[in-house]
Design a protein around this nucleic acid. Structure first.
Lengths: 346, 346
DNA sequence: TTGTATGCGTTATCAC
DNA sequence: GTGATAACGCATACAA
């Protein structure tokens, strides 16, 4: 059981000053070795670099940043680190950030406003170069505060009713329309929409698109049944499944459109537990096309969102807002795409 | 399309000096309002606070940190942000960090050493209070460098062969033993171990435990078949399923022990696609007991690891290493627990 | 090529 | 109760 005291750990991290002293040069020369190595003679440089190694010198980013006035990091405050959709978006952000020479910190608000606020405040204090956020509530004034305090912010996968922010999102109404049009094409005339709570804009828009497609096809509105859930999770999908299949035979839908894939997976599991078949007893369309959708027991038809692209574009926007004085806010809307698989193609 | 220039954004963030000027007090007084409000008269305080609001003043964390010598953040560098196991551990870390008044940044190495290194370097430069890491390679000298450079590091869910680091892990050999003992109790005498690559310590240990339990039961070694996978993912589980079920009838196992739940889920899906039943045709034990395990079409028997507890304990250790000069490195090992469900209980 | 001096924003110590 | 000042570590402009 070795203690830390025994020389393993440096008591006080060494600074450029320490390095300078050890190498027998001035502080400015050390700085030059770090930032403009060409202006230093090879011999001096070697000596300084040796001193750095001896001392285990590491730049102090706080001091650098204080001096430079800006940091070299980006942050993405995401809604739910357990939902593969968001980690896929994050991967797109990560790639773009890497290409720009920036580090990315992920912060998980876990669907809680208070945690989101804490993170935003901390990031603003850190003076990060930019913040990407999928907020609990896109209309929240807290977001406006962040920008007012000088940090560029881009809203990801949500839209704000005004145009005072950049945002990247996917056309959810169109997505809902695609899903339901597909089901209608397959001959379904009694369909359940499963999703909620309707405080989530996404859920409302997808339902709206579904309703429009339904109306356009001239089908009676009461044959599009809405089953409301508490959240967009696997567990909720299972419970929604029980409710749907509990409906009387003549009210029971032949297909379900779920507001996301986690719900769809839960629903699928519930049906298969009950010995029902997909799509025989119920066809299913999900939303997001996460990896698990295609890998499900019955591969899921789903509405694909360009997840990594969402992250990439959001990163470009936040960097433009940070660097470009002429920056103009943009609301980017991507087009979703239906991927048909066995869960609707029996 | 509003441009940013129009006064929405602050050109230069205001500092304590600006606030002091606006409130007509000295800089020191502003600092007192922030840090020792009791030493300031109510009237002055009100005036200063108003000035802060007017100017949208936000503390500069870099300056604070430079002055204080230490930051108020922790970081967890995780191996795979898409694996629910790690996000659950992260949630445990987050809770403990919050309780200690610290922020947590998540960094996803995505199984790549180079990215892990970049993150570690950046975090050391940031002088974060501590780093938790589930490394690609626990033996890597890079970890020793981090600590040598003055940042406390705790290894999560891996162990290092020497005792120069704190670590928290779960007894994987015992986990493997529990899984196989359970299968033996259920009467299985021909079992597949599915997992890989064996560069992962976890996989080796779980297999070792499985082998020992097998030997202890006096069963012939060749009836414990090892099926090696390229990674611990759903997709690999499906492909392993094909291989297992492709074995000749007399060599085919009646049960499988998977090195993690993602593999087990893939296997389950593959079987159900082929019209085979679980546990009738093949019983399955997974590992990790992630949320999806209990929610699967056939609820999975799995070896549970105390995920959040892992994160919590790791956080305590890293804070002790940061605060306590008497700190002694500890290797904490948790005990796993078998959770039996339908996938083995027919 | 190398050295010196200054300031970034904050906090703390000390006079007043 | 309030104000002046130094220091944290670094990068840069400028002097030598």
């Amino acid at each position: 059981m070795p203690s830390c005291g025994g020389g393993t750990r440096v008591v006080r991290a060494s600074s450029v000053k320490d390095v300078a002293a050890r190498a027998g040069v001035s502080l400015g020369t050390v700085s030059n070795v770090l930032n403009r190595p060409d202006r230093v003679s090879p011999e001096t440089r070697a000596r300084v670099e040796q001193a750095m190694r001896d001392l285990g010198f590491v730049r102090n980013e706080s001091a650098r940043q204080l001096r430079a006035g800006r940091s070299r990091t980006l942050a993405y405050v995401l809604l739910d680190a357990r939902n593969p959709f968001f980690t896929d978006v994050a991967e797109g952000v990560e790639r773009a950030a890497e290409a720009a020479g920036l580090s990315l910190f992920l912060c998980n608000s876990d669907n809680r406003s208070s945690r989101e606020q804490d993170y935003l405040a901390h990031l603003v204090e850190q003076r990060v170069q930019g913040i990407l956020v999928t907020p609990v509530d896109a209309q929240s004034p807290a977001l406006a505060d962040v920008r007012r305090n000088g940090t560029p912010v881009v809203i990801v996968d949500r839209t704000r009713s005004d145009d005072t922010f950049c945002s990247v999102a996917v056309d959810d109404e169109l997505g809902g329309r695609l899903a339901v049009e597909h089901l209608i094409e397959q001959g379904h005339t009694r369909v359940a929409f499963i999703g909620g709570p309707d405080t989530i804009g996404q859920v409302r828009d997808r339902l709206e698109g579904a309703r429009k497609a339904w109306a356009d096809a001239g089908l009676p509105p009461e044959q599009l049944v809405v089953v409301t859930t508490e959240a967009l999770t696997v567990v909720e999908g299972r419970s929604a499944g029980e409710r749907v299949m509990g409906l009387g035979r003549n009210r029971r839908p032949t297909a379900a459109f779920c507001a996301n894939d986690l719900l769809a997976l839960g629903l699928l599991q519930q049906l298969s537990t009950s010995g029902l078949s997909v799509p025989g007893d119920l066809a299913i369309v999900g939303y997001d096309d996460i990896e698990y959708a295609s890998a499900a027991a019955v591969p899921l038809t789903s509405v694909r969102q360009p997840r990594q692209e969402l992250g990439r574009r959001a990163t470009e926007l936040v960097l433009d807002e940070a660097d470009n004085p002429e920056h103009v806010h943009q609301q980017v809307v991507f087009t979703p795409e239906l991927v048909a698989r066995r869960s609707t193609l029996g």
